[in-house]
């Protein structure tokens, strides 16, 4: 039972990740590798706010979202000019800078969470408290799973509303042909900044839930591998519509569990899991470039 609840908690986190990345890949037509950075921003902001300031779940998550929205300008402003390969590289450098910051904002002589040792570097932040909403401690696996799924549903409603609104239509038009959209008087740059802000804020929520669930984070939360995992969800499930990312999150959650049931030794299992992701990426590009349930083909 607790195993199932564990899976459900992760499912909620994965779904939020995939849905938020879908806004960037499927509706802005840009491949970003910096998304794990924003996930980690949410995690770190939550951890520090609860550990150092003693904030509850909602304000701490809100802080993470706010910081992530602000920092989303680091990828959305360059996207005024960069498309395709150049944007991938730019997002990669943003990701590397995030990682570098989390890894290096460290001073062994100080307590973690102070200005000179904000992130505790490679050792990460431990003992992050379980979330408390309106004074109710969510310390059982069941309540954690409920929180995670409820957040996923909330994010789902949010993105459904937004993407089926005229704003979503504007994003699609911009993705199809930005110059034509601008010729119709549309401020595509503003729309893209908004889209990135929403996507990055959303993934920060996932980061906060993750931090509160595992109660320990380190710079690897922001690693390139984490970005690639999120990318795989959207590529495999499909981008450009609502159901694609859900399918992707489910599949990428199911693969490691299937391997676990296949009784493969622990060391090989992690490699096999990643190999399966890699293989899926290749197969998708060959046989279903729009993903299993998506609408949009990567340019």
């Amino acid at each position: 039972m607790s195993y199932l609840l564990h899976l459900l908690t992760y499912l909620g986190i994965y779904v939020i990740m995939a849905m938020s990345l879908n806004i960037i890949i499927g509706y802005c037509g840009l491949l970003t590798l910096a998304h794990a950075g924003y996930f980690a921003v949410g995690s770190y902001a939550y951890a520090l706010a609860t550990l150092k300031l003693g904030w509850g779940f909602l304000p701490a998550t809100g802080l993470g979202v706010g910081v992530a929205v602000l920092l989303s300008l680091a990828v959305s402003l360059p996207a005024w000019r960069f498309k395709g390969d150049s944007f991938v590289l730019l997002s990669l450098s943003v990701q590397a800078l995030f990682f570098s910051l989390f890894y290096n904002w460290f001073d062994a002589s100080e307590e973690p969470g102070t200005w000179t040792n904000l992130t505790n570097g490679p050792f990460g932040l431990a003992n992050i408290p379980r979330p408390a909403i309106l004074g109710i401690e969510l310390d059982t696996p069941g309540s954690m799973a409920a929180l995670s799924l409820a957040s996923a549903v909330a994010c789902g409603i949010l993105s459904w509303r937004l993407l089926s609104s005229p704003w979503g239509r504007l994003l699609k038009a911009m993705r199809d042909d930005e110059l034509a959209a601008r010729g119709l008087g549309k401020n595509t740059r503003l729309a893209r900044v908004q889209a990135f802000a929403i996507a990055c804020g959303m993934v920060a929520v996932a980061g906060a839930i993750y931090a509160s669930y595992v109660s320990y984070i380190d710079p690897n939360t922001a690693s390139l591998d984490a970005s690639i995992l999120m990318l795989s969800m959207v590529i495999v499930g499909g981008a450009g519509n609502f159901r694609g990312p859900l399918v992707g999150a489910l599949i990428l959650l199911a693969i490691p569990e299937a391997l676990r049931f296949a009784q493969i030794p622990q060391a090989a299992a992690s490699s096999l899991r990643l190999m399966a992701y890699g293989l899926l990426l290749i197969l998708m590009m060959h046989f279903r470039p729009q993903g299993l349930a998506g609408d949009y083909r990567i340019e």
Partner: peptide
């Protein structure tokens, strides 16, 4: 816009 319907092409 190739992925929008004709109606959306005008409405957008």
């Amino acid at each position: 816009f190739p992925t929008l319907t004709l109606q959306d092409n005008i409405a957008v």
